[in-house]
């Protein structure tokens, strides 16, 4: 039973990590690409880290929670770096895809 939960968490995490990178690969402009890695990848890696914490807590004789630290760190830093990258992209006047509403010049 426990193995099933762990496997599900690992597969879901890996899937979301992949979705983030697919978004990075196939979306048409920078501002749209920004969405993939900031959301999907963060959740994906978060799920993998939770799976790792569970795995080490149940398979060794001590509780392992330090993976939570990376999870929290990623959840705090991902939006910050996304914000700065977007700010930089606006600053150097990166082109946006034509169908964008309210294009920033």
């Amino acid at each position: 039973m426990f193995e099933w939960i762990l496997s599900a968490l690992i597969l879901v995490g890996a899937f979301f990590t992949l979705v983030g990178s697919i978004g990075l690969y196939k979306l048409p402009d920078f501002f749209m690409r920004l969405h993939g890695p900031t959301k999907a990848t963060t959740l994906g890696v978060g799920a993998l880290l939770i799976a790792s914490a569970l795995y080490f807590s149940f398979n060794t004789d001590q509780i392992s929670l330090h993976e939570v630290l990376i999870t929290i760190f990623l959840f705090i830093t991902a939006p910050v770096s996304a914000h700065l990258m977007a700010k930089a992209a606006i600053h150097i006047k990166l082109k946006q895809v034509k169908r964008t509403q309210n294009i920033i010049k």
Partner: peptide, 9 residues
């Protein structure tokens, strides 16, 4: 930035 389809720029 973390919620539905939006990123603060």
């Amino acid at each position: 930035s973390l919620t539905p389809g939006t990123v603060s720029c």
